[in-house]
Design a protein around this nucleic acid. Sequence first.
DNA 1: CTGTTAGCGCATTCAT
DNA 2: ATGAATGCGCTAACAG
Lengths: 341, 341
Amino acid sequence: MEIVTIKDIAKVTGFSPSTVSRVIANNSRISEETKNKVRAAMDELGYHPNLTARNLVIQSTKTIGVIMPSSADKSLQNPFFTEVLRGIGSYFHQKQFSILLSSGQTEQEKFEEIERMVLGKYVDGIILLYSRLNDSVVDFLKEKNFPFVMVGKPSGDKDEIVHVDNDNVKAGKDITTYLIENGHRRISFIGGAADLVVTIDRQKGYEMALKEADIPILKEYTIHTEFLKSGGRQAVEQILGLELKPDAVVVSDDLISVGVISMLEEYGLKVPEDISLVSFNNIYFSEIIKPALTTVDIQIYELGVESAKAIIQMCTNQKLSKKRIIIPHHIAYRDSVCLKK
Amino acid sequence: MEIVTIKDIAKVTGFSPSTVSRVIANNSRISEETKNKVRAAMDELGYHPNLTARNLVIQSTKTIGVIMPSSADKSLQNPFFTEVLRGIGSYFHQKQFSILLSSGQTEQEKFEEIERMVLGKYVDGIILLYSRLNDSVVDFLKEKNFPFVMVGKPSGDKDEIVHVDNDNVKAGKDITTYLIENGHRRISFIGGAADLVVTIDRQKGYEMALKEADIPILKEYTIHTEFLKSGGRQAVEQILGLELKPDAVVVSDDLISVGVISMLEEYGLKVPEDISLVSFNNIYFSEIIKPALTTVDIQIYELGVESAKAIIQMCTNQKLSKKRIIIPHHIAYRDSVCLKK
DNA sequence: CTGTTAGCGCATTCAT
DNA sequence: ATGAATGCGCTAACAG
């Protein structure tokens, strides 16, 4: 690939480099005629602006670092992430922004990468695709006063950190109430990683609903498990071994539900006949599995779009109307709940 | 964030900018003493090299564009992608490379984005995470003679295009043969999008196995469906309506299997009692669903790692030993096949 | 071992 | 409406 620069176009057309530059920017003070001439030459020679050079002078890259949780665990296979990514990408595309994806396996690696991006001025902003307790990344970003938005609720500084979230407490309460309304009273909660804010919030909602219905909250009814295989098995075993077996279960993530359902079946319990199940996210196969899941649709794609909007606003010095952007949820009613007749 | 440059460090330490630059590069011709002094100053002032500036002069970004299929369809929610991404990321991290993720929704958008990356010299190379027939992106990359590697088998120019793939024909044959060995003879094939090379290859293997066992290949036994909902339903209905109902089915992707299983159950067929099922990929929940899937483990993570290795080799002018890199597959034997007694 | 000089490709003052 | 000059922050010849 031959390198053709602004100077080459200038030489060929007889204009100066600055004029060519102005044509690229479509500056209004350039006559249509020269614009045409210059553009013709650009086509002719196959010119394309060098983004790195441009970025250097404008001191901005129009690139946003998008950070996934460190990927040692399998939770990364959650379709949630590709779906937010899709949302982010769709908005970025119209605004000509790019996604620089973090790829760190460990917390340490992830941190190093973010440091590189930020201190190396390789990105204009950061989107964090998770929120967990005591996250050093957040501390770093805050200290550097670097533009970032978080998908999910911050564990602290809720009024400071721009974030795009669902009302997960309410979602947890809504879906649990739905269970209660249908006659369930012995309701268990199975959550993902316990230090994820989203897990905590959904559990909180679950507990609120119970309290409101005067149902006692039993510690033994709550499990946390990232991954439904060996560890999860024992946990489910434990719950089912209780004197008062639950008649319903709230699961904090559709992906975990898949595991829970098959595990329950191993213990001879069919969903929803023997035990009802509800969960969260509404990833696409929650509709195609058997039974189709009654789940909270949190509009993952929208979560992505809005976080993209927010970070671009921040990077272009526009005013943000609010720090906390809530994406509404709604329940997708399907077949995993045994309804009251 | 105050901007501190190489010049500032130079001024403070009394050395020249080039010396400072050499310290950053850890040049061997700089005395340990000055290195220490310079580094101290860098710490002091909080210096960090500006990557954009560096990239401009070295004419390289150490950034690779990673291209997902255009994401209009739901197939993007396939955990396959995050898993390759993990593999790529893990290798990139050690080599200090970054991932620039494509985010186009339509083919058109995707193409524009790649054009920007490539012509704008914003990336050193490209990894394509899919392979389909008549892909204009591939034509573009070839024409520009731009370094790229493909995950999957190219639809043409197999000897030209560097690609990391499984032997999907053999995989298809192996898994189908396994079915045959266990007494199945009426075997159906359910594939994803028909223009995906991976689908084509796996189907080819399926047909080879049948032929070798002298089992006639029936056109009516083959379905293509990207998404197992409305369209897929009719297709399955059709197959089950045949006089000779299949006693086994080869599904080209674990994710589709989830849909197939539930759809079969709707028609009263239980896996594996009434009908056996095998598929491909071994994404993590193929192990936790009920029944656990007998599936070809294609080592997605490795696919990512090797494609990362290959593209970095190409970008650093190292010799590639071969154009075609095959990741071995093996069958994960589980519970979705009814075994011959 | 270190300094001087030049230039990567572009946008942007300040002129005219 | 256009051109000349400058510099973004860095690396890399070349010189010593």
